[in-house]
Amino acid sequence: MTLIVEEGADRVVWRLNRPQVRNAIDRELVAALHEACAAVEEEPRVVLLTGEGTTFAAGADIAQLRERDRGDALRGINSRIFDRIHRLPMPTVALVDGYALGGGAELAYACDFRIGTPRTRIGNPETDLGIIAAAGAAWRLAELVGEPLAKEILLAGRVMTAEEARAVHLLNDVVEPEDLLAAGHRLADRITARAPLATRLTKAVFHAPRAAHPFVDDLAQAVLFETEEKHARMTAFLDRRKERRP
């Protein structure tokens, strides 16, 4: 089993389970991730994504990658699954212990949040292997850390430490390895305490193209204004404020 899925009522934990090869991403793992995405698309929940052992994901499986041809590249084997993860309806959290390199880094970039440990190392050494970072890093990384640093990672092979990544907000937090999963659950608790549909629509609006605004903002708000949960939450807020008054 290349992917272990732990189901919860409002969240799910995905564990990359190829520790013998540092969770290298192969076709079987990609297929398992597609299956896991389908389940979360059907029943939206927060996703916590981590790796078994002391590595998040050391990249694509090089033995398989070496044999891929032009047709494989055009099929976007990794880029399509990472884009699907990026588009999941509820937020996703990458729990990055150890190395996240190449495809492993691109998988982390596709998530909404990233939490690391002091031994996290993240980068894209693809050009050293004669290829490019074609599963999102070549464009997504600049959005996350800015163009100058993104070019240093992509073109000069810089591998960032945990503290360097935290300093540029590529990592939202850095915790000890034994606290990594708990930190992910604490963040999930904060997310799931909010109105689920409002969270889903906020994520969708956030990622909408600039030309779609402000129409999509107004449309999402129109949907939410008609929900019972909006009325109940606002009523509870007003009641609490009344109780605090002298």
Rank of each mutant, 00 (worst) to 15 (best):
A211D: 12
L181Y: 01
N23F: 02
I77D: 08
A162V: 14
G157V: 05
M1G: 15
T50C: 07
P118K: 11
R66V: 14
D26I: 03
A162F: 13
E178D: 15
M234G: 04
T54A: 12
E126Y: 04
R22V: 05
E67S: 12
F215A: 11
D72T: 03
C111E: 02
L74T: 09
V96P: 02
A211T: 10
R210S: 13
N17M: 10
A105M: 15
A236N: 04
V46K: 01
A39I: 07
T202W: 08
E228P: 02
R244K: 10
G157C: 12
A212P: 06
V46P: 00
R140E: 12
I25F: 05
K151I: 06
I131L: 10
V145M: 06
D72E: 13
N78C: 07
D112S: 11
A137K: 02
P118T: 09
R80W: 06
E35T: 13
N78G: 04
P89N: 06
I62S: 13
P125D: 02
E52G: 05
D26F: 06
M90G: 01
D83P: 04
M1R: 14
I81E: 10
A222N: 06
H207Q: 10
E42T: 09
N23W: 02
T55Y: 09
V168W: 13
V168M: 14
E7Y: 12
R140V: 07
T161C: 08
R244Y: 07
R75I: 00
V174M: 07
L74Q: 13
G76H: 01
A100W: 10
I62A: 11
R119A: 15
L107R: 04
R84V: 00
Y109G: 01
A208V: 11
T54E: 14
L74M: 12
Q221F: 04
A142Q: 10
S79R: 13
A208T: 11
A156S: 07
R15I: 15
P209W: 07
G51T: 02
E178S: 12
G8Q: 12
R45L: 06
D112H: 12
N78A: 09
A204H: 10
R70F: 09
R210Y: 14
L33Y: 01
E42H: 08
A36K: 03
A220F: 08
G59C: 02
N172G: 15
F225I: 03
Q20A: 13
A38M: 09
L197H: 02
L49W: 08
H213V: 00
E52C: 12
R200E: 09
G102W: 11
A134I: 04
A188L: 01
V46T: 14
T92S: 15
R68G: 13
A165E: 00
L65E: 11
G136N: 04
P246S: 14
P89Y: 05
T55Q: 12
R11D: 10
P44T: 02
R166Y: 15
D128S: 13
P118L: 13
G76P: 00
N23R: 01
R80L: 07
G103Q: 05
L95V: 00
